[in-house]
Nucleic acid binder design. Structure first.
Lengths: 213, 213
DNA sequence: AAATGTTTGTTAATCCATTCACATAGTAGC
DNA sequence: GCTACTATGTGAATGGATTAACAAACATTT
């Protein structure tokens, strides 16, 4: 069923989670079939974009019918590998880090923060939302080999020390909230979430919108 | 000095905060001039992109010299309007909301969360990091007219009630952590930060990278 | 002041993504 | 089974952003 390795564009990859979430909701509502036109209304992505995205994963739909919701849930689930849980470690148990642990992607049982690290001795040895907090200097000792993914919530200044340490223990996917751009191995996939930048560029757009309107 | 309203692309807008942060740091280090080539090494954006972005705000540089760091700090500061403080309200004082308030964009004195709202009576009336928490049902009563910006950190299911209420009191810029897409007024600028999607698409890329490599 | 070297700003080329529009293939009704 | 619909998947057109490459502008040195 999977397409002959048609290249999946980066823009499409960023939309997979949105598709997955939407079709999951439809499935829960008992909806059995969905047209691209109708899905477009729900998630606010043009129907042509939806059809092109979907077609890059194979011929998921049927002409004159639409898509089977169950099929879509299966296919996107496979793409996102939701069947086997992804264990994740988190570095930096300040306000943001602690909030992320508490939350722990509760809606997605396949995403688990299983351990956390900090250098603050007041936090080391404690638990946050059931997740143990270890000394970051014991990283290599504490980490289990199934963990390939890390979330970084440390101050920007500390990040340059954190990344190489993570790469040293086999982490190859990093989500970081420290905006400081950083050099990492070519095998490491890194993504930045920069809250200040998001807010500033949002404000820029909002304040300059009157010109466009 | 400002260019004759050359259109600023969306991609450029998203980079302004990065530029601003970088040139601020250079200024603090006492650096007086910077070439696009050198700046490129620092922020990992190609020098051609930097020059094109900068030129959309006017002729900021000088051939054979580069850019004056002070000039850049001034210009980007003006673009981001950092001189007058932006007061922000936050809705939803759960783990994430509380962490955002505690943090309160401390590095950027012009960004201030000045009040917060929740519907949990245990939180109403308290303070978080010096910011008062009010009853969301008193939104119209409590909000001051200088506030045009809101951050939403409520569960997705609650968001459809929150947005119209905010628009009703004059909010026109919204940053939300609830991924549920939502209809809002054409005058409202909204931006989503979807942590689960970011993580899922990161993992997709990381897991499928071996094919590309 | 002339010559040499440097770096911008921009034109042109390229790349990537979105959108249009429709032939094709399947559905639904009779 | 035949006819009338319907919605996909995709070639072609468009649009937006990035990158290459270089003429023009300025700095610096002699």
């Amino acid at each position: 069923m999977l397409n002959t390795r048609a290249r999946v564009s980066k823009a499409t990859v960023r939309r997979i989670p949105l598709y997955y979430r939407a079709v999951q909701q439809l499935q829960q509502q008992g909806v059995k079939r969905i047209r691209s036109e109708r899905l477009s209304e729900i998630i606010h992505i043009p129907s042509a974009t939806i059809r092109r995205d979907f077609s890059s994963f194979g011929e998921l739909g049927k002409s004159g019918y639409g898509y089977s919701v169950d099929t879509l849930v299966d296919e996107f689930g496979k793409l996102l590998e939701v069947q086997d849980a992804e264990n994740i470690l988190l570095v930096g148990c300040g306000g943001l880090g602690a909030a992320l642990i508490e939350n722990n992607f509760r809606r997605n049982p396949d995403l688990n923060i299983t351990m956390a690290f900090d250098i603050d001795s007041a936090k080391i040895g404690t638990e946050i939302g059931g997740v143990p907090v270890y000394d970051f200097r014991e990283l290599a000792m504490r980490v289990t080999p199934d963990i390939k993914t890390a979330i970084i919530a440390v101050p920007s200044s500390a990040q340059p020390q954190v990344i190489p340490a993570l790469e040293g223990i086999g982490i190859d996917a990093i989500l970081t909230f420290a905006p400081q751009p950083v050099v990492c191995l070519p095998t490491t996939t890194i993504r930045y979430i920069d809250l200040t930048s998001e807010l500033q560029s949002l404000l820029f757009t909002a304040h300059h919108q009157q010109l466009a309107e």
